[in-house]
Each structure stands twice: as structure tokens, then as C-alpha cells.
């Protein structure tokens, strides 16, 4: 049993890989169920049948689906994601231009939301049933159900229209000082944080309360350990795993949230690239972006599971 952790971790990694493979199959299947349409789409409805046929051969659309899937998949391994149909630039190029912007937005949001959410969640768990907990419960319960564009609209209305502190649109190219930086990121980050913090705080509270309900905390209470110490020294160390799990799972929400936020604030990130690609029906770009998002999602979920595995003392102390 000494090897329990490596075995579990490896098992989890390989199951993620299998899932990613299956996900790629699903994405490819959906996007290539209409084999004739792609060429027609690119050329428009006035193309002659000859042109369409020529483009189909050029794109390899006349090959059987399984072979095309193989080419597509091997393209991923080598970083050759094909050409974007709408503007003729390679997909890799387009994506690598946009990816750092999205990662920066995600990093700032994470750096702000995680500490706040942990504080809120832990406070609520410590004051369970009290006024603070009830208010936080109501607020977070409402916030998790709010669509991003409502938060974004209200934020623009308040900070850009009424108070005139911030510009309504984001342009990353004009960063010159810290003030510019704040102006650009304040509202997208605020919007993303709202829902993320609510989600994370709720899960943190639940994870900690799970520990507070256990027998050893009751024991500590019976032997007279003061409440603060009971939470911070007894329950919290044991809740680290579940809380890390909750944080990683909540962060996967970011993947859905950025799509709306990048669009509404004109933020030049990977999600707005994908939305444009969907509008233009640029399938190669959509496939690549979807794979990127799904992999990111799988990685976050896997990290959540790994946190749970690694922090389980029953496995660690064997």
C-alpha cells in the first residue's frame, strides 16, 4: 500500500487522457457531420460546383471521416492546427496572439477571488446560523444565479456612465501606467469575480462545515477548546483538501464566464476569438478553441481530484 498515491494519481491522469480523447472525438464528430457544407460555407452560395469540389479536395474533405479525424488529431500533437477559413492565417498564430491576454485576465481574477472567497467561506462556516452567515448565504445564493451580462451591464452603468471612472470598453494595447492597467481590467475582473467568489465561498463553507460536523471537532468542543482555535487548528487543516478541491472546481467556471465577459468588454482574448469564429463558422478555429477550453476544464477538474487524493491523510500516512 506504500504506492497508493502514485497509483491513484497515475490512474487519474490516464483517465483524464482517455476522457480528453473521447471529447476530441465528440467535438470532431459534431463539427464534421456535414462534410459537404464546409467548402460551400467558405465559398458562399454563389460558388460553382467545380470550385466547391476543388476546395473540398484541397481541404481533404473527400477523404473518409476516420482519416480526417486522424489527420486532425495528429495535427494537434504537432501544433499544426490548420488554417483559419475566414482570414487565411494559421490557427496556431491566431490563438497564440490571444492566449496570453486571456491567461492574464484569468490570473488576475484568480488572485483576487480566491483569498476573498476563502475569507468569506471560512467566516460563514465559523458563524454558522448567525446573522453574518445568513446574509452571506443569501448574497452568494443570489450571485451564483446571476448572468454575467447583468453584472457587466450594471458595472458599466455605475462606473462608466454614472461615475465616469472607467472606460466602458477594454483595449489592452494602451497600457502605459498602472492606472491604465486598472482602468482596463477593473470591470472585466469585477464581473468575473462576482459569480466566482460566490460559488467558491459556498463550496468552501460546505467543505469546512463538513469537518466541523465531525466527531473530532465535537470532541475538541467537549474538552473546552475555544471556537476560534477549534476552527483554525482542528478543522481547517483537515479541510484544506476539500477546499482546494472546491477552488479548482469553481475556477472551471471561469471558462464559461470569460466567453461573455470578453465579448461584452471587447477584450481581445481567446474566448472572443472563439465567439467570432462561431459567428463566421470558421470550423478549424472553433475546433481548436473548443479543444483548448475542454482541456483546460479537464485539467482543473483533474487538479481538484488530485487535491482530494493528495490531502487524504489516510493515503498519505500509509
Amino acid at each position: 500500500m506504500r504506492n497508493a498515491i502514485p497509483v491513484l494519481v497515475l490512474g487519474r491522469l490516464s483517465s483524464s487522457l482517455v476522457t480528453l480523447f473521447l471529447v476530441s472525438l465528440v467535438i470532431f464528430a459534431i463539427t464534421s457531420m456535414l462534410p459537404g457544407d464546409t467548402a460551400q460555407l467558405i465559398l458562399g452560395q454563389f460558388a460553382t460546383p467545380d470550385q466547391v469540389a476543388a476546395l473540398r479536395t484541397e481541404l481533404g474533405l473527400d477523404q473518409p471521416a476516420l482519416l480526417r479525424y486522424w489527420h486532425w488529431l495528429s495535427g494537434f500533437m504537432t501544433g499544426n492546427l490548420g488554417m483559419s477559413a475566414s482570414n487565411g492565417v494559421s490557427v496556431t498564430q491566431l490563438m497564440s496572439d490571444r492566449l496570453p491576454n486571456s491567461l492574464l485576465l484569468a490570473a488576475i481574477t484568480t488572485a483576487i477571488s480566491v483569498p476573498l472567497a476563502l475569507i468569506m467561506g471560512i467566516t460563514a462556516a465559523m458563524r454558522r446560523g448567525g446573522a453574518v452567515d445568513r446574509v452571506l448565504n443569501l448574497v452568494t445564493l443570489s450571485m451564483v444565479a446571476v448572468p454575467e451580462f447583468l453584472v457587466a451591464t450594471l458595472a458599466v452603468l455605475l462606473f462608466a456612465v454614472k461615475l465616469d471612472w472607467l472606460p466602458a470598453l477594454s483595449y489592452v494595447s494602451t497600457v502605459e501606467s498602472f492606472g491604465d492597467f486598472m482602468k482596463i481590467y477593473a470591470m472585466p475582473v469585477l464581473t468575473l469575480c462576482c459569480v466566482l467568489i460566490a460559488q467558491m465561498a459556498r463550496m468552501t463553507r460546505a467543505a469546512l462545515i463538513d469537518q466541523l460536523d465531525s466527531a473530532y471537532v465535537e470532541m475538541a468542543r467537549l474538552k473546552g477548546v475555544p471556537p476560534m482555535r477549534r476552527v483554525l487548528r482542528h478543522a481547517l487543516p483537515n479541510a484544506v483538501g476539500p477546499i482546494a478541491n472546491a477552488v479548482a472546481l469553481s475556477l472551471s467556471y471561469l471558462l464559461g464566464g470569460v466567453i461573455i465577459v470578453e465579448t461584452i468588454f471587447n477584450y481581445p482574448g481567446i474566448a472572443s476569438l472563439m465567439v467570432d469564429a462561431v459567428s463566421n463558422r470558421d470550423l478549424a478555429l472553433v475546433q481548436a478553441c473548443a479543444m483548448l477550453f475542454c482541456s483546460a476544464y479537464l485539467v482543473l477538474v483533474m487538479m481538484a481530484d488530485l487535491c482530494a487524493i493528495l490531502s487524504n491523510p489516510r493515503l498519505r500516512n500509509r
Binding site: T19, T31, L255, V278, C294, V301
Partner: peptide, 15 residues
């Protein structure tokens, strides 16, 4: 394992 917005976007892009 496919986030819901991804699923919707991919399907809309195809069909």
C-alpha cells in the same frame, strides 16, 4: 467533460 457553453458554441458553429 465538455463545458455547456462549449457544447452550444461548437454545435451552433457546425449547424
Amino acid at each position: 467533460s465538455i463545458p455547456s457553453k462549449m457544447m452550444a458554441l461548437v454545435m451552433v458553429s457546425a449547424f
